[in-house]
Design a protein around this nucleic acid. Structure first.
Lengths: 131, 131
DNA sequence: GGGATAGTGACGCCATGATGCAAATATATC
DNA sequence: GATATATTTGCATCATGGCGTCACTATCCC
């Protein structure tokens, strides 16, 4: 809970990389990779706007790719924590994990803000001087 | 500015996909793709924690990959709007666009919240019943 | 101008991943 | 048990993307 973020003055990036910060845990390439594919984003948007759990077959009607591809994408999104999967009988119902996602992105925004240099003394070297 | 998000009851995902919502613009696979690579995220964390503009050479000392690879990654991050690039003389100074990034992620969080179904009547079909 | 420094661009190699098809599995229904 | 439905998995193909090497350009300093 303690805010370690107001750390010291600008250092070399190599030194800075060694310091711990909130962004370390929140900037997760795996999550972004999951959201980095156009088809997957299309499916996610579809699920988000539908506002209810949807089966693989239903979601597959939202785009042109093969059914098996949709099934794989949804499964991957679930493994990445983006969707929740609930199997009932022979059908799987997928729901976006809205609360978790929103909270993750908000925490990330906060962590990034913590990294923002203050306009004053933002840079000890000459790299910040106006041209 | 008008909030169209409180739209109607759950529909088929195919119908839902046709409706416009804030997530349509904010869930951008290109941004996520840029943030979906471990090396790029490492470089970005490095820049974020350094809290000042850094040159390509400086950032390149933060990881093991070849200098040219770092240069390409930084250039890509700049093209994706994650970094700002400022060329002074023969060196390029990169800075994270903290405000834009934080604001993007916050808007995204809001848009996702808008998609969250109300706990009541979240689903007209039997897909939401407890097991 | 000549040489050093900072970064970009053009290759080729290789791993990953997205896709479609078809077979396999799991579950309901008859 | 046979059959239909819902999804998963194996396989082959193909495109994308990350990486390193090297040549090239731009800029600075002598």
């Amino acid at each position: 809970m303690a805010s370690l973020s107001q750390s010291r003055q600008p250092s070399s990036p190599r030194q800075a990389a060694r310091r711990k910060a909130a962004v370390d845990g929140l900037l997760d390439p795996e999550l972004f990779k999951a959201l980095g594919d156009p088809t997957r984003v299309l499916l996610l948007r579809c699920l988000l706007k539908c506002k209810r759990a949807c089966s693989v077959s239903e979601v597959a009607e939202c785009c042109d790719v093969d059914f098996s591809v949709v099934a794989r994408h949804l499964s991957l999104l679930a493994r990445s924590g983006v969707l929740e999967a609930r199997k009932v009988g022979r059908t799987v119902w997928y729901t976006p994990r809205c609360e978790d996602l929103a909270s993750t992105f908000r925490s990330l925004a906060d962590a990034i803000d913590d990294c923002s240099p203050t306009p004053i003394d933002c840079c000890g070297s000459d790299c910040c001087k106006e041209e």
